[in-house]
């Protein structure tokens, strides 16, 4: 994904990567990244939490104009309400 963002950016399309994997994103270094410390698949927050989803979307889009150098990565000050883990498992139900 970061690689695709870099190629789009080089073609004059501004990109923002909204990531839940900070280390993965940091090493690929997309042009602009927002790190959301939520479970993978919850990049924009919890289900049916419209305000949270809108907030993350707004912050992400704002970075298009705020970034002044390529490779910027900002950490959103958000906390997921319960512990979560790395998983190679299909769903929480079966874990």
């Amino acid at each position: 994904m970061g690689l695709v963002c870099r190629i789009a950016e080089e073609a004059n399309i501004a990109t923002v990567c909204v990531s839940t994997g900070r280390d993965l994103t940091a090493q690929v270094k997309p042009p602009r990244s927002v790190f959301v410390n939520f479970p993978m698949g919850n990049n924009f927050g919890a289900p049916e939490h419209r305000e949270q989803q809108l907030g993350i979307l707004r912050k992400s889009l704002a970075l298009v104009h705020e970034a002044d150098e390529g490779g910027v990565l900002i950490d959103l000050p958000l906390t997921w309400p319960e512990p979560f883990y790395y998983l190679n498992r299909p769903t929480r139900k079966t874990a």
Binding site: M1, V4, C5, V16, P30, N43
Partner: peptide
Amino acid sequence: SAPAFVSKLNEDAVDILLAAPA
């Protein structure tokens, strides 16, 4: 793959790509 994708974004006059990996 990425250049083909970028061509499609250009067809749609996209200014900003919001990318969400999962």
